[in-house]
Nucleic acid binder design. Structure first.
Length: 470
RNA sequence: GCUCCCUUCGUCUAGCGGUCCAGGACGCGGCCCUCUCAAGGCUGAAACACGAGUUCGAUUCUCGUAGGGAGCGCCA
Protein backbone atom coordinates (compact mmCIF):
# COMPACT_ATOMS: atom_id res chain seq x y z
CA UNK A 1 0.00 0.00 0.00
CA UNK A 2 1.32 3.41 -0.90
CA UNK A 3 1.68 5.68 2.06
CA UNK A 4 -0.21 8.93 1.76
CA UNK A 5 0.04 11.73 4.29
CA UNK A 6 -1.23 15.25 4.37
CA UNK A 7 -0.74 18.57 6.02
CA UNK A 8 -4.01 20.37 6.54
CA UNK A 9 -3.61 23.86 8.00
CA UNK A 10 -6.40 26.31 8.35
CA UNK A 11 -5.53 29.62 6.73
CA UNK A 12 -6.05 31.90 9.68
CA UNK A 13 -2.49 33.20 9.93
CA UNK A 14 1.06 32.48 8.93
CA UNK A 15 2.76 29.10 9.06
CA UNK A 16 4.32 29.01 12.50
CA UNK A 17 7.05 26.73 13.76
CA UNK A 18 4.66 24.29 15.39
CA UNK A 19 2.74 23.86 12.17
CA UNK A 20 5.96 23.68 10.22
CA UNK A 21 7.21 20.82 12.35
CA UNK A 22 3.96 18.92 12.01
CA UNK A 23 4.21 19.47 8.26
CA UNK A 24 7.80 18.27 8.31
CA UNK A 25 6.90 15.06 10.12
CA UNK A 26 4.01 14.36 7.76
CA UNK A 27 6.22 15.15 4.78
CA UNK A 28 9.01 12.91 6.08
CA UNK A 29 6.60 10.07 6.73
CA UNK A 30 5.57 10.23 3.08
CA UNK A 31 9.07 10.73 1.66
CA UNK A 32 10.65 8.09 3.86
CA UNK A 33 8.25 5.55 2.41
CA UNK A 34 8.13 6.72 -1.19
CA UNK A 35 4.64 7.90 -0.49
CA UNK A 36 2.65 10.94 -1.48
CA UNK A 37 2.28 14.17 0.44
CA UNK A 38 -0.91 16.16 0.10
CA UNK A 39 -1.45 19.78 1.02
CA UNK A 40 -4.99 20.61 1.99
CA UNK A 41 -6.29 23.99 3.02
CA UNK A 42 -9.00 23.74 5.65
CA UNK A 43 -10.83 26.92 4.94
CA UNK A 44 -14.35 26.02 5.95
CA UNK A 45 -14.34 28.80 8.51
CA UNK A 46 -15.27 31.57 6.11
CA UNK A 47 -15.07 34.14 8.87
CA UNK A 48 -11.42 33.68 9.67
CA UNK A 49 -9.83 32.27 6.55
CA UNK A 50 -8.00 34.69 4.31
CA UNK A 51 -6.25 34.54 0.96
CA UNK A 52 -3.20 36.19 2.52
CA UNK A 53 -2.91 33.37 5.01
CA UNK A 54 -3.13 30.80 2.27
CA UNK A 55 -0.29 32.55 0.50
CA UNK A 56 1.72 32.81 3.71
CA UNK A 57 1.40 29.08 4.24
CA UNK A 58 2.36 28.32 0.67
CA UNK A 59 5.36 30.64 0.95
CA UNK A 60 6.47 29.05 4.20
CA UNK A 61 6.25 25.54 2.81
CA UNK A 62 8.13 26.56 -0.31
CA UNK A 63 10.90 28.26 1.65
CA UNK A 64 11.36 25.14 3.75
CA UNK A 65 11.30 22.99 0.66
CA UNK A 66 8.41 20.83 1.80
CA UNK A 67 6.94 20.16 -1.58
CA UNK A 68 3.60 18.47 -2.04
CA UNK A 69 2.53 15.94 -4.63
CA UNK A 70 -1.14 16.80 -4.57
CA UNK A 71 -3.00 19.98 -3.87
CA UNK A 72 -3.37 22.49 -2.53
CA UNK A 73 -6.89 21.23 -2.17
CA UNK A 74 -9.36 23.71 -0.77
CA UNK A 75 -12.20 22.45 1.34
CA UNK A 76 -14.39 25.30 0.21
CA UNK A 77 -14.30 23.71 -3.25
CA UNK A 78 -15.73 20.51 -1.87
CA UNK A 79 -18.97 21.64 -0.29
CA UNK A 80 -21.07 19.64 -2.75
CA UNK A 81 -19.25 16.52 -1.73
CA UNK A 82 -19.76 17.17 1.97
CA UNK A 83 -23.46 17.84 1.41
CA UNK A 84 -23.70 14.58 -0.45
CA UNK A 85 -22.17 12.64 2.42
CA UNK A 86 -24.31 14.40 4.99
CA UNK A 87 -27.36 13.37 3.00
CA UNK A 88 -26.08 9.82 2.81
CA UNK A 89 -25.74 9.67 6.58
CA UNK A 90 -29.18 11.19 6.99
CA UNK A 91 -30.69 8.64 4.61
CA UNK A 92 -29.08 5.81 6.49
CA UNK A 93 -30.27 7.28 9.78
CA UNK A 94 -26.70 7.64 10.96
CA UNK A 95 -27.30 11.33 11.38
CA UNK A 96 -30.34 13.36 12.29
CA UNK A 97 -31.68 16.88 12.33
CA UNK A 98 -31.47 18.71 15.60
CA UNK A 99 -33.72 21.65 16.34
CA UNK A 100 -32.40 22.53 19.74
CA UNK A 101 -31.87 26.27 20.01
CA UNK A 102 -28.44 27.49 21.03
CA UNK A 103 -29.83 28.87 24.25
CA UNK A 104 -30.96 25.45 25.35
CA UNK A 105 -27.51 24.03 24.60
CA UNK A 106 -25.90 26.80 26.62
CA UNK A 107 -28.05 26.05 29.60
CA UNK A 108 -27.42 22.36 29.28
CA UNK A 109 -23.67 22.88 29.25
CA UNK A 110 -23.75 25.09 32.30
CA UNK A 111 -25.88 22.65 34.24
CA UNK A 112 -23.64 19.72 33.35
CA UNK A 113 -20.52 21.59 34.36
CA UNK A 114 -22.19 22.40 37.63
CA UNK A 115 -23.09 18.76 38.14
CA UNK A 116 -19.46 17.85 37.63
CA UNK A 117 -19.97 15.89 34.45
CA UNK A 118 -18.49 16.41 31.06
CA UNK A 119 -20.69 18.74 29.03
CA UNK A 120 -22.25 17.05 26.04
CA UNK A 121 -25.37 17.00 23.95
CA UNK A 122 -28.15 15.06 25.65
CA UNK A 123 -29.64 13.57 22.50
CA UNK A 124 -32.98 15.32 22.74
CA UNK A 125 -33.57 15.23 18.97
CA UNK A 126 -32.28 11.71 18.46
CA UNK A 127 -35.78 10.44 18.06
CA UNK A 128 -38.02 12.21 15.57
CA UNK A 129 -40.55 14.47 17.19
CA UNK A 130 -42.43 17.59 16.36
CA UNK A 131 -40.56 19.75 13.93
CA UNK A 132 -40.49 23.36 15.06
CA UNK A 133 -41.01 25.61 12.10
CA UNK A 134 -39.01 28.68 12.96
CA UNK A 135 -35.74 26.84 13.51
CA UNK A 136 -33.22 25.82 10.88
CA UNK A 137 -31.84 22.51 12.05
CA UNK A 138 -28.25 21.40 12.31
CA UNK A 139 -27.28 17.87 11.43
CA UNK A 140 -25.88 15.71 14.18
CA UNK A 141 -23.94 12.52 13.82
CA UNK A 142 -25.48 9.60 15.67
CA UNK A 143 -22.57 8.48 17.80
CA UNK A 144 -22.57 4.89 19.08
CA UNK A 145 -24.06 5.01 22.62
CA UNK A 146 -21.70 2.54 24.22
CA UNK A 147 -18.55 0.55 23.78
CA UNK A 148 -15.03 1.91 23.51
CA UNK A 149 -13.08 3.41 20.69
CA UNK A 150 -9.56 2.09 20.77
CA UNK A 151 -6.83 3.05 18.38
CA UNK A 152 -3.16 2.43 18.18
CA UNK A 153 -1.46 5.78 17.94
CA UNK A 154 1.78 5.72 15.97
CA UNK A 155 3.58 7.76 18.57
CA UNK A 156 1.67 7.10 21.76
CA UNK A 157 0.55 3.56 21.51
CA UNK A 158 -2.90 2.41 22.47
CA UNK A 159 -5.44 5.10 23.30
CA UNK A 160 -8.91 4.24 24.47
CA UNK A 161 -11.98 6.27 25.16
CA UNK A 162 -15.52 5.29 26.04
CA UNK A 163 -18.29 6.20 23.64
CA UNK A 164 -20.21 7.43 26.62
CA UNK A 165 -17.79 10.32 26.77
CA UNK A 166 -18.66 11.30 23.24
CA UNK A 167 -21.81 13.01 22.15
CA UNK A 168 -23.68 13.50 18.90
CA UNK A 169 -21.51 16.11 17.31
CA UNK A 170 -22.76 18.57 14.76
CA UNK A 171 -21.56 17.74 11.26
CA UNK A 172 -23.49 20.42 9.39
CA UNK A 173 -24.41 23.84 10.68
CA UNK A 174 -27.86 25.33 10.31
CA UNK A 175 -26.66 27.13 7.20
CA UNK A 176 -25.72 23.78 5.75
CA UNK A 177 -21.96 24.24 5.94
CA UNK A 178 -20.01 21.25 7.20
CA UNK A 179 -17.88 21.25 10.34
CA UNK A 180 -14.29 20.27 10.97
CA UNK A 181 -14.55 16.79 12.44
CA UNK A 182 -16.73 15.77 9.54
CA UNK A 183 -14.79 17.35 6.67
CA UNK A 184 -11.47 15.88 7.78
CA UNK A 185 -12.95 12.44 7.70
CA UNK A 186 -14.56 12.87 4.30
CA UNK A 187 -11.38 14.38 2.89
CA UNK A 188 -8.96 11.89 4.36
CA UNK A 189 -11.22 9.13 3.16
CA UNK A 190 -11.64 10.53 -0.35
CA UNK A 191 -7.96 11.34 -0.65
CA UNK A 192 -7.06 7.89 0.61
CA UNK A 193 -4.81 9.25 3.31
CA UNK A 194 -3.15 6.33 5.07
CA UNK A 195 -1.37 8.17 7.89
CA UNK A 196 -2.84 11.15 9.64
CA UNK A 197 -0.01 13.00 11.34
CA UNK A 198 -1.11 16.01 13.32
CA UNK A 199 -0.72 17.85 16.60
CA UNK A 200 -1.71 16.09 19.78
CA UNK A 201 -4.38 18.70 20.40
CA UNK A 202 -6.40 16.48 18.06
CA UNK A 203 -6.19 13.33 20.16
CA UNK A 204 -9.56 13.99 21.66
CA UNK A 205 -11.15 14.39 18.23
CA UNK A 206 -9.83 11.13 16.94
CA UNK A 207 -12.36 8.75 18.54
CA UNK A 208 -15.33 10.62 17.14
CA UNK A 209 -13.69 10.77 13.74
CA UNK A 210 -13.12 7.04 13.88
CA UNK A 211 -16.82 6.58 14.55
CA UNK A 212 -17.61 8.62 11.46
CA UNK A 213 -15.28 6.46 9.38
CA UNK A 214 -17.14 3.40 10.56
CA UNK A 215 -20.50 4.98 9.81
CA UNK A 216 -19.24 5.67 6.32
CA UNK A 217 -18.07 2.09 5.94
CA UNK A 218 -14.49 3.23 5.58
CA UNK A 219 -11.37 1.91 7.23
CA UNK A 220 -9.80 4.60 9.44
CA UNK A 221 -6.21 5.57 8.64
CA UNK A 222 -3.36 5.21 11.09
CA UNK A 223 -3.00 8.18 13.43
CA UNK A 224 0.16 9.70 14.77
CA UNK A 225 -0.19 12.57 17.20
CA UNK A 226 2.94 14.62 17.59
CA UNK A 227 3.46 16.73 20.69
CA UNK A 228 3.19 20.48 20.84
CA UNK A 229 6.06 22.90 20.84
CA UNK A 230 6.35 25.07 23.92
CA UNK A 231 7.78 28.54 24.16
CA UNK A 232 10.91 29.18 26.21
CA UNK A 233 8.71 29.85 29.20
CA UNK A 234 7.24 26.38 28.92
CA UNK A 235 3.85 27.64 27.82
CA UNK A 236 2.34 26.36 24.63
CA UNK A 237 3.54 28.03 21.49
CA UNK A 238 0.73 29.35 19.40
CA UNK A 239 0.00 32.13 16.99
CA UNK A 240 -1.06 34.18 19.96
CA UNK A 241 1.86 33.21 22.13
CA UNK A 242 5.42 33.55 21.02
CA UNK A 243 5.17 31.61 17.82
CA UNK A 244 6.62 33.44 14.91
CA UNK A 245 6.01 32.56 11.32
CA UNK A 246 8.66 30.58 9.52
CA UNK A 247 9.17 33.47 7.12
CA UNK A 248 10.18 35.58 10.08
CA UNK A 249 13.10 33.19 10.53
CA UNK A 250 14.09 33.85 6.94
CA UNK A 251 13.98 37.56 7.66
CA UNK A 252 16.00 37.09 10.83
CA UNK A 253 18.76 35.38 8.92
CA UNK A 254 18.20 31.68 9.39
CA UNK A 255 18.82 29.09 6.72
CA UNK A 256 15.95 26.73 5.98
CA UNK A 257 18.36 23.82 6.50
CA UNK A 258 19.02 25.01 10.05
CA UNK A 259 15.39 25.51 10.93
CA UNK A 260 14.44 22.14 9.50
CA UNK A 261 17.26 20.43 11.38
CA UNK A 262 16.31 22.19 14.57
CA UNK A 263 12.66 21.32 14.20
CA UNK A 264 13.24 17.67 13.42
CA UNK A 265 15.31 17.23 16.57
CA UNK A 266 12.52 18.69 18.62
CA UNK A 267 10.73 15.50 19.45
CA UNK A 268 12.50 13.15 17.10
CA UNK A 269 15.87 11.55 17.47
CA UNK A 270 18.13 9.01 15.90
CA UNK A 271 20.53 8.00 18.63
CA UNK A 272 22.95 10.78 19.48
CA UNK A 273 22.99 12.33 16.04
CA UNK A 274 22.35 16.05 15.99
CA UNK A 275 22.96 17.10 12.43
CA UNK A 276 20.71 15.90 9.64
CA UNK A 277 20.45 17.02 6.07
CA UNK A 278 17.00 16.74 4.57
CA UNK A 279 18.20 13.68 2.66
CA UNK A 280 19.35 12.04 5.87
CA UNK A 281 16.08 12.80 7.57
CA UNK A 282 14.23 11.14 4.72
CA UNK A 283 16.49 8.13 5.00
CA UNK A 284 16.28 7.78 8.78
CA UNK A 285 12.87 9.11 9.74
CA UNK A 286 10.37 6.82 11.37
CA UNK A 287 7.27 8.23 13.01
CA UNK A 288 7.74 5.65 15.75
CA UNK A 289 10.86 7.46 16.92
CA UNK A 290 8.91 10.61 17.65
CA UNK A 291 8.71 11.56 21.31
CA UNK A 292 5.56 11.85 23.34
CA UNK A 293 6.61 14.86 25.34
CA UNK A 294 6.01 18.46 24.41
CA UNK A 295 9.28 20.28 23.91
CA UNK A 296 10.39 23.83 24.51
CA UNK A 297 11.80 25.95 21.74
CA UNK A 298 15.43 26.81 22.38
CA UNK A 299 16.73 29.69 20.21
CA UNK A 300 20.38 29.15 21.23
CA UNK A 301 20.45 25.73 19.72
CA UNK A 302 18.86 27.03 16.55
CA UNK A 303 21.64 29.64 16.43
CA UNK A 304 24.25 26.97 16.79
CA UNK A 305 22.77 24.94 13.95
CA UNK A 306 22.42 28.01 11.80
CA UNK A 307 26.09 28.80 12.23
CA UNK A 308 26.96 25.20 11.62
CA UNK A 309 25.17 25.29 8.28
CA UNK A 310 26.65 28.64 7.33
CA UNK A 311 30.07 27.12 7.91
CA UNK A 312 29.52 23.79 6.22
CA UNK A 313 27.13 24.34 3.35
CA UNK A 314 28.76 25.27 0.04
CA UNK A 315 29.62 28.96 0.29
CA UNK A 316 27.84 29.72 -2.95
CA UNK A 317 24.58 28.33 -1.57
CA UNK A 318 24.88 30.40 1.57
CA UNK A 319 25.85 33.42 -0.49
CA UNK A 320 22.64 33.15 -2.47
CA UNK A 321 20.65 33.49 0.74
CA UNK A 322 22.96 36.17 2.05
CA UNK A 323 22.34 38.38 -0.96
CA UNK A 324 18.73 38.83 0.16
CA UNK A 325 19.92 40.27 3.47
CA UNK A 326 22.30 42.73 1.87
CA UNK A 327 19.47 44.01 -0.23
CA UNK A 328 17.20 44.04 2.79
CA UNK A 329 19.73 46.18 4.63
CA UNK A 330 20.24 48.48 1.69
CA UNK A 331 23.83 47.43 1.09
CA UNK A 332 24.99 47.54 -2.51
CA UNK A 333 27.38 44.66 -3.13
CA UNK A 334 28.23 45.48 -6.76
CA UNK A 335 31.61 46.87 -5.75
CA UNK A 336 33.48 44.71 -3.30
CA UNK A 337 34.41 41.13 -2.52
CA UNK A 338 32.58 38.10 -3.85
CA UNK A 339 29.78 37.05 -1.54
CA UNK A 340 31.17 33.51 -1.29
CA UNK A 341 34.38 34.96 0.13
CA UNK A 342 32.42 36.98 2.63
CA UNK A 343 30.61 33.81 3.70
CA UNK A 344 33.86 31.89 4.02
CA UNK A 345 35.44 34.34 6.41
CA UNK A 346 32.35 35.53 8.30
CA UNK A 347 30.48 32.27 8.85
CA UNK A 348 32.40 31.35 11.98
CA UNK A 349 31.87 34.70 13.64
CA UNK A 350 28.13 35.29 13.30
CA UNK A 351 24.98 33.37 14.15
CA UNK A 352 22.74 34.57 11.37
CA UNK A 353 22.86 35.83 7.81
CA UNK A 354 21.34 39.05 9.00
CA UNK A 355 24.31 39.58 11.30
CA UNK A 356 26.67 38.51 8.56
CA UNK A 357 25.35 41.18 6.23
CA UNK A 358 25.44 43.81 8.94
CA UNK A 359 29.01 42.93 9.95
CA UNK A 360 30.11 42.91 6.33
CA UNK A 361 28.79 46.31 5.41
CA UNK A 362 32.29 47.69 5.90
CA UNK A 363 33.60 45.62 2.98
CA UNK A 364 31.22 47.39 0.61
CA UNK A 365 30.84 50.84 2.07
CA UNK A 366 33.51 53.18 3.37
CA UNK A 367 32.96 53.93 7.01
CA UNK A 368 32.44 57.55 7.98
CA UNK A 369 34.61 57.89 11.02
CA UNK A 370 36.61 55.83 13.47
CA UNK A 371 34.95 54.34 16.46
CA UNK A 372 36.08 56.72 19.22
CA UNK A 373 37.21 54.07 21.67
CA UNK A 374 38.99 51.96 19.08
CA UNK A 375 40.79 54.99 17.66
CA UNK A 376 41.79 56.24 21.08
CA UNK A 377 43.22 52.90 22.00
CA UNK A 378 44.96 51.86 18.80
CA UNK A 379 45.58 54.90 16.60
CA UNK A 380 48.33 56.23 18.83
CA UNK A 381 51.48 57.95 17.64
CA UNK A 382 53.43 54.73 18.18
CA UNK A 383 51.27 53.00 15.58
CA UNK A 384 52.27 55.40 12.85
CA UNK A 385 55.46 53.56 12.04
CA UNK A 386 53.86 50.18 11.47
CA UNK A 387 50.97 51.68 9.54
CA UNK A 388 53.38 53.56 7.32
CA UNK A 389 55.38 50.39 6.77
CA UNK A 390 52.23 48.48 5.89
CA UNK A 391 51.20 51.21 3.50
CA UNK A 392 54.55 51.08 1.73
CA UNK A 393 54.66 47.32 1.46
CA UNK A 394 51.04 46.98 0.42
CA UNK A 395 51.34 49.57 -2.31
CA UNK A 396 53.79 47.41 -4.18
CA UNK A 397 51.94 44.14 -3.57
CA UNK A 398 50.35 42.67 -6.67
CA UNK A 399 49.22 39.32 -5.32
CA UNK A 400 46.31 40.44 -3.12
CA UNK A 401 45.70 37.05 -1.56
CA UNK A 402 45.31 36.13 2.12
CA UNK A 403 48.63 34.27 2.12
CA UNK A 404 50.60 37.06 0.52
CA UNK A 405 48.96 39.60 2.79
CA UNK A 406 49.80 37.50 5.79
CA UNK A 407 53.45 37.46 4.72
CA UNK A 408 53.50 41.24 4.45
CA UNK A 409 52.21 41.59 7.99
CA UNK A 410 54.73 39.06 9.28
CA UNK A 411 57.51 40.89 7.53
CA UNK A 412 56.55 44.26 8.95
CA UNK A 413 56.13 42.90 12.46
CA UNK A 414 59.48 41.15 12.30
CA UNK A 415 61.29 44.17 10.99
CA UNK A 416 59.83 46.42 13.65
CA UNK A 417 60.48 43.73 16.22
CA UNK A 418 56.96 43.86 17.58
CA UNK A 419 54.25 41.25 18.02
CA UNK A 420 51.46 40.66 15.56
CA UNK A 421 49.04 42.50 17.77
CA UNK A 422 50.95 45.73 17.60
CA UNK A 423 50.60 45.74 13.86
CA UNK A 424 47.20 44.16 13.51
CA UNK A 425 45.09 46.24 15.85
CA UNK A 426 45.96 49.69 14.47
CA UNK A 427 45.61 48.24 10.99
CA UNK A 428 42.21 46.82 11.86
CA UNK A 429 40.99 50.19 13.04
CA UNK A 430 42.45 51.81 9.94
CA UNK A 431 40.63 49.40 7.65
CA UNK A 432 37.28 49.01 9.36
CA UNK A 433 37.05 51.96 11.74
CA UNK A 434 36.50 49.52 14.58
CA UNK A 435 38.47 47.19 16.79
CA UNK A 436 36.63 44.08 15.66
CA UNK A 437 36.86 42.29 12.34
CA UNK A 438 37.93 38.95 10.90
CA UNK A 439 41.61 38.04 11.07
CA UNK A 440 43.62 40.92 9.71
CA UNK A 441 44.89 39.19 6.58
CA UNK A 442 41.35 38.19 5.62
CA UNK A 443 40.11 41.65 6.40
CA UNK A 444 42.69 43.17 4.05
CA UNK A 445 41.82 40.60 1.44
CA UNK A 446 38.09 41.30 1.53
CA UNK A 447 38.61 45.03 1.74
CA UNK A 448 40.58 45.04 -1.49
CA UNK A 449 43.74 46.95 -2.28
CA UNK A 450 42.30 50.34 -3.09
CA UNK A 451 40.17 50.73 -0.01
CA UNK A 452 42.81 49.20 2.24
CA UNK A 453 45.34 51.80 1.20
CA UNK A 454 42.77 54.57 1.62
CA UNK A 455 41.96 53.39 5.10
CA UNK A 456 45.58 53.30 6.18
CA UNK A 457 46.19 56.77 4.79
CA UNK A 458 43.15 58.02 6.64
CA UNK A 459 44.42 56.49 9.88
CA UNK A 460 47.83 58.09 9.40
CA UNK A 461 46.17 61.46 8.93
CA UNK A 462 44.18 60.87 12.06
CA UNK A 463 47.34 60.16 14.04
CA UNK A 464 49.09 63.23 12.63
CA UNK A 465 46.18 65.39 13.65
CA UNK A 466 46.29 63.85 17.07
CA UNK A 467 49.95 64.64 17.48
CA UNK A 468 49.41 68.19 16.27
CA UNK A 469 46.63 68.67 18.77
CA UNK A 470 48.84 67.76 21.70
C1' G B 1 -15.53 19.94 36.90
C1' C B 2 -15.10 15.65 33.53
C1' U B 3 -12.16 12.83 29.80
C1' C B 4 -7.64 11.94 27.31
C1' C B 5 -2.37 12.65 27.09
C1' C B 6 2.55 13.69 29.17
C1' U B 7 6.89 13.56 33.15
C1' U B 8 15.65 11.73 32.32
C1' C B 9 20.71 17.60 33.32
C1' G B 10 18.34 24.94 32.56
C1' U B 11 16.88 23.22 27.25
C1' C B 12 16.72 19.23 23.19
C1' U B 13 17.48 14.18 23.88
C1' A B 14 19.98 8.61 24.31
C1' G B 15 18.31 4.72 27.23
C1' C B 16 13.94 0.02 25.40
C1' G B 17 15.31 -5.01 33.41
C1' G B 18 21.55 -5.79 34.96
C1' U B 19 26.19 -2.63 29.96
C1' C B 20 23.88 3.74 34.05
C1' C B 21 27.27 6.24 40.92
C1' A B 22 22.84 7.51 33.47
C1' G B 23 25.55 8.94 27.45
C1' G B 24 25.35 13.02 23.54
C1' A B 25 24.03 18.13 21.99
C1' C B 26 22.90 23.48 23.01
C1' G B 27 23.88 26.86 26.78
C1' C B 28 27.11 27.88 31.11
C1' G B 29 32.30 27.66 33.91
C1' G B 30 37.68 26.56 33.40
C1' C B 31 42.11 25.68 30.50
C1' C B 32 44.66 25.73 25.69
C1' C B 33 45.14 28.25 20.97
C1' U B 34 45.22 33.51 19.53
C1' C B 35 46.18 40.06 15.88
C1' U B 36 40.39 41.77 17.86
C1' C B 37 35.83 39.06 17.61
C1' A B 38 34.91 34.36 16.78
C1' A B 39 35.80 29.38 15.55
C1' G B 40 38.40 25.04 17.31
C1' G B 41 40.56 21.47 21.07
C1' C B 42 40.47 19.66 26.07
C1' U B 43 37.83 19.89 30.56
C1' G B 44 34.04 20.90 34.68
C1' A B 45 29.22 21.58 37.00
C1' A B 46 24.36 19.79 35.79
C1' A B 47 18.85 15.04 35.43
C1' C B 48 15.98 9.48 36.08
C1' A B 49 9.04 14.21 39.78
C1' C B 50 7.38 11.35 44.30
C1' G B 51 5.44 6.81 46.63
C1' A B 52 4.14 1.87 46.52
C1' G B 53 4.50 -2.68 44.11
C1' U B 54 6.52 -6.75 40.32
C1' U B 55 11.53 -8.79 40.19
C1' C B 56 17.49 -11.67 42.48
C1' G B 57 17.78 -6.63 40.25
C1' A B 58 14.41 -0.98 38.21
C1' U B 59 15.65 5.12 34.60
C1' U B 60 13.49 1.04 32.03
C1' C B 61 7.24 -2.92 33.79
C1' U B 62 2.36 -1.98 36.91
C1' C B 63 -0.54 1.06 40.08
C1' G B 64 -1.22 5.44 42.81
C1' U B 65 0.16 10.76 44.09
C1' A B 66 1.86 15.37 42.48
C1' G B 67 2.81 18.59 38.51
C1' G B 68 2.04 19.96 33.34
C1' G B 69 -0.69 19.89 28.63
C1' A B 70 -4.97 19.17 25.57
C1' G B 71 -10.12 18.55 24.65
C1' C B 72 -15.17 19.17 26.31
C1' G B 73 -18.11 25.08 20.12
C1' C B 74 -23.31 25.70 14.68
C1' C B 75 -13.43 27.08 15.45
C1' A B 76 -10.09 24.18 13.02
Amino acid sequence: MTIRTRFAPSPTGFLHVGGARTALFAWLQARANQGAFILRIEDTDLERSTAESVQAILDGMAWLGLNHDEGPIYQTHRFDRYAEVVQQLLDEDKAYHCYCPKERLELLREQQMKDGIKPRYDGKCRNPGVVPEAILPVVRFRNPPDGNVVFDDLVRGSISISNQELDDLIIARSDGSPTYNFTVVVDDMDMQVTHVIRGDDHINNTPRQINIYHALGAEPPAFGHVPMILGQDGARLSKRHGAVGVMQYRDDGYLPQALLNYLVRLGWSHGDQEVFSLEEMVKLFDIKDVNRKASAFNPEKLDWLNQYYMKTLPATDVAAQLAWHFTDQGINTQEGPALEDVVTVQAERVKTLKEMAAHSRVFFETYDEFDANAAKKHLRPVAAESLQAMLNNLQSLDDWSPDALHDVIDTVAARLEVGMGKVAQPLRVALTGTGVSPSIDKTLWLMGKKRSLEGIAKALDFIKARIAAQ
